[in-house]
Design a protein around this nucleic acid. Structure first.
Length: 260
DNA sequence: TAACGACTTTAAGGCTGAAT
DNA sequence: ATTCAGCCTTAAAGTCGTTA
């Protein structure tokens, strides 16, 4: 979808983008190959052309940085399809305390669409290990991560490359009419959890960690299973929410018109 | 070049979910 | 029940292009 988007250009909002599609200008290439566009002056079109050439070049290189910098967070979902190969679902568990009161990350779960990797405090969780994993990816997928997971990790591990484009499913889902927390949305979408972890919440994750610290071996296993389910389900939800957001733009109906 | 209309941008306030 | 950050909504202000 990103190469069909104009909404990140200064002075172009939802209406104007839709208007471009309506005129048959469905992609950056279309924009660059016509000489004039109604309602756009010469100067204005030239400025946009320069911008689109730049983004087009960076997209070919799969450089995610300019997109993270110049596209508003609420539009980052448009990068999902192009960057899916490099996407990483992330979910953390903590000991429940605020950072400045001794709060710490206990588990970090990462899922790239094929494999889950989990990092556990006191075992394999370290800034270096996270850095190594994150630096291989170009799009973050979280649920409410922009308010919780990402700021938390950033403050605890200063060097992590977390300034990636970020598809936050909490706000995206809300925009397509799905409200509530992750567990509620999973249920609404018919995604089912294993019996032993169904009904667990983020607070339970805190308690499980405490139990493990006091010597209960199975608590850690349960916590890891819980974290795994949270992390993996993000990808399913991302796929569904992406399609719904795409539908909402109206883009597809203009594409169909131009084909027929 | 002044006024108008359509749209975008900005700023403030409200809302939500995740955490204790 | 309370706290927090960030997104969304709303309304006001600003911009661009058109028209006379």
């Amino acid at each position: 979808m990103i190469e069909h988007s104009f909404i990140f250009l200064d002075g172009i909002g939802e209406k104007t983008e839709r208007d471009l599609w309506k005129q048959g200008i469905l992609s950056w290439n279309d924009f660059l190959s016509v000489s004039t566009i109604s309602n756009f002056g010469y100067q204005r079109k030239r400025i946009y052309e320069e911008s689109l050439q730049y983004f087009s070049h960076e997209l070919q290189r799969m450089n995610e940085k300019p997109f993270a910098e110049f596209i508003k967070p609420k539009d980052h979902w448009r990068l999902f399809k192009r960057f899916r190969k490099y996407a990483i679902c992330l979910d953390i568990e903590t000991n429940g305390l605020p950072l400045d009161a001794g709060g710490e990350t206990t588990v970090v779960g990462l899922y790239d669409g094929n494999n889950v990797k989990q990092f556990v405090k006191g075992r394999n969780l370290s800034e270096d290990a996270l850095f190594e994993e994150l630096s291989q990816h170009k799009l973050l997928i979280t649920f409410f991560g922009s308010s919780f997971d990402i700021p938390f990790l950033k403050r605890q591990f200063r060097s992590l490359p977390l300034d990636l484009p970020h598809f936050d499913l909490c706000f995206s889902a809300r925009r397509v009419g799905m409200t509530g927390g992750l567990k509620k949305i999973e249920t609404d979408l018919g995604l089912v959890r294993e019996k032993n972890i169904s009904g667990l919440s983020g607070y339970d994750a805190v308690l499980l960690w405490k139990e493990w610290c006091h010597g209960n071996q199975t608590s850690l296993n349960t916590l890891l299973e819980y974290n795994r389910a949270d992390t993996v389900n993000l990808m399913d939800i991302a796929n569904i929410v992406y399609e719904m957001l795409l539908e909402n733009t109206g883009f597809q109906q203009y594409r169909e018109n131009s084909l027929s």
